[in-house]
């Protein structure tokens, strides 16, 4: 401790009923449904901070979720929020964003919802450079239904529908998104809170399709099935095995079972959005 510090006497903790983030949360619904050590809550916490930092007026932000554990996010954020059917958050958000371009539309959903059942919508929205912020919490498994194999489950990982180990090749989601033409792509784990918050802020302010993959622990299902310990053990794993590589070739950022997780901001480009091009064409401006 520096010599200049003058510490006051210990004051202990305060026991309180409200949290500074409560104004952006539906605090009458807390505690939320997510399991102890689940990373989704941390991702939401980062999002709340990011939204504040982004300068976007709260009443102009709409959050759309699909089905699954992360699909419940919409219900906890004190914003205009919509909880769609499984996989369909992106097309719903597309309708909102095109009908009122003044709204900032955020899709907050899970890997199963966005990449598997909603995969076609994900790739097409990225291809169109639809003005959406997509936050994809990837916990490598279907949590809400009890731990089934996902299209992001690493090879050999055990799930209730791959009890002998997953034999399928998983998606490398940032690579997929880059191939489709997304304007912004970043990946962080929920351990990287400050960087995740920054990525979410950048994504919120990005004009175009912005995609943030959030690697998050699922201790109840993914970790238990694979004997990886507690959520805290997974956080330690991220600490030891996440490698920050900004601008990495997304081809190289696939995730294997308990292998290195490459994180960072991979893509940040500028190009006209769907609506800009559409209006350019339809009002004679041209882009």
């Amino acid at each position: 401790m520096s010599t200049a510090v003058t510490n006051t006497a210990p004051t202990g903790e305060r026991q309180v009923q409200h949290h500074p983030k409560d104004t952006l949360l539906r605090d009458d619904r807390l505690p939320h449904i997510w399991c102890p050590t689940c990373g989704i809550g941390t991702a939401v916490s980062c999002f709340v901070e990011a939204l504040r930092e982004s300068g976007i007026p709260e009443e102009k932000c709409v959050v759309v979720s699909g089905i699954g554990c992360t699909g419940r996010v919409a219900g906890y954020l004190n914003l205009d929020s919509f909880h769609t059917t499984h996989g369909r958050a992106i097309p719903f958000a597309t309708g909102v964003a095109l009908a009122n371009p003044d709204l900032h539309v955020v899709v907050f959903s899970g890997d199963g919802d966005l990449v598997a059942i909603g995969g076609n919508h994900l790739i097409n929205a990225a291809r169109r450079n639809m003005n959406l912020t997509v936050i994809c919490v990837n916990n490598f498994i279907y949590g809400m239904t009890g731990g089934q194999c996902a299209s992001t489950t690493p090879e050999t990982a055990r799930t209730s529908t791959s009890p002998r180990g997953n034999t399928e090749y998983p998606f490398n989601v940032p690579y997929l998104m880059e191939a489709c033409g997304a304007s912004y792509i970043a990946r962080w784990t929920v351990l990287h809170i400050r960087r995740l918050k920054k990525a979410m802020t950048e994504a919120l302010n990005k004009n175009g399709f912005a995609f943030v993959e959030v690697i998050a622990p699922c201790s109840t299902l993914y970790s238990r099935r694979n004997k990886l310990g507690t959520g805290y053990d997974l956080m330690k794993f991220y600490h030891d095995n996440a490698e920050i590589r900004h601008g990495a070739n997304t081809k190289d950022v696939g995730i294997g079972f308990q292998t290195k997780i490459i994180v960072g901001k991979f893509v940040d480009i500028t190009k006209p959005t769907f609506l800009e091009k559409y209006q350019g064409k339809t009002t004679g401006g041209g882009k």
Binding site: P20, K21, H32, G39, T42
Partner: peptide, 11 residues
């Protein structure tokens, strides 16, 4: 502690 807490339970 506030940022990493998944429960909005500490700050």
């Amino acid at each position: 502690c506030e940022d990493i807490c998944p429960e909005f339970a500490i700050y």
